[in-house]
């Protein structure tokens, strides 16, 4: 920010802002935000990926704009302002997806419009973008958006592989694959999300144990 800051340190800070959403504060696996699209549209990898990218686009654009306007918007009407800004970009995404693929638009259904009320976007606008300069806010939003995309893709890939035996529509196991019907049903979303969270919790615990720390849950 200031002139005296060394170049390497500035880059480190930017990298930190970027990786915050991508990994350390991942919206899906750590903050558990935006569960509604996470569970509903991750039936296939394509759906998950496009939903994630659409959300990332809205997130980056609206965070940048919110950050630019942070000194102009009165505190009392900020939420309304954020919503209008977010809704604008959601409309853009909505029409863009209709233009690119109507089948995808039908598959995602109302969840594109519902990006407006996605708590990641409003949360980031309120907690981060309204307090930081545009460059920092957009890098952070990009990290968050990509983190959300990665999370959705992790769910969508597992559900498509087990539920249809394919990834991005490409068959992996041949014609004789037995689809796990439950994986493309709503319960499958919960099962897969739970398994991922279990995996991350186990990983975290293992890291702490290797570092010689005792988690409070461990009773000797």
């Amino acid at each position: 920010m200031s002139q005296s800051t060394p170049n390497a340190s500035a880059r480190n800070q930017t990298w930190d802002e970027f990786t915050e959403g991508l990994w350390r504060q991942n919206p899906v696996f750590v903050m558990m935000l935006g569960m509604c699209p996470t569970l509903a549209v991750t039936v296939s990898a394509v759906n998950a990926l496009s939903m994630g990218l659409a959300t990332a686009f809205v997130l980056v654009c609206s965070c940048a704009l919110v950050s630019l306007m942070r000194k102009v918007v009165p505190k009392e009407v900020r939420i309304a302002t954020y919503i209008v800004i977010i809704a604008t970009f959601v409309t853009v995404v909505d029409y863009a997806i209709q233009m690119v693929s109507l089948a995808l638009y039908d598959a995602l259904g109302a969840f594109i419009q519902l990006i407006v009320v996605n708590c990641i976007i409003l949360g980031r606008a309120e907690a981060h973008a309204s307090k930081n300069p545009p460059w920092v806010a957009s890098v952070n939003a990009l990290g968050m958006g990509l983190g959300f995309t990665v999370g959705l893709f992790a769910l969508g890939a597992v559900r498509e592989i087990l539920g249809a035996g394919s990834l991005f529509g490409i068959s992996l196991f041949g014609a004789d694959f037995q689809p796990w019907v439950v994986m493309v049903l709503p319960p499958g979303g919960f099962f897969v999300l739970g398994s991922w969270l279990l995996g991350f919790a186990w990983w975290e615990k293992r890291k702490q144990r290797l570092a010689g720390l005792q988690t409070p849950a461990e009773r000797g």
Binding site: Q178, W180, V181, V182, M183, L185, P187
Partner: peptide, 10 residues
């Protein structure tokens, strides 16, 4: 219940 939901035919 899980296999009932996953493999209803089998």
């Amino acid at each position: 219940a899980f296999v009932q939901a996953a493999f209803p035919v089998a």
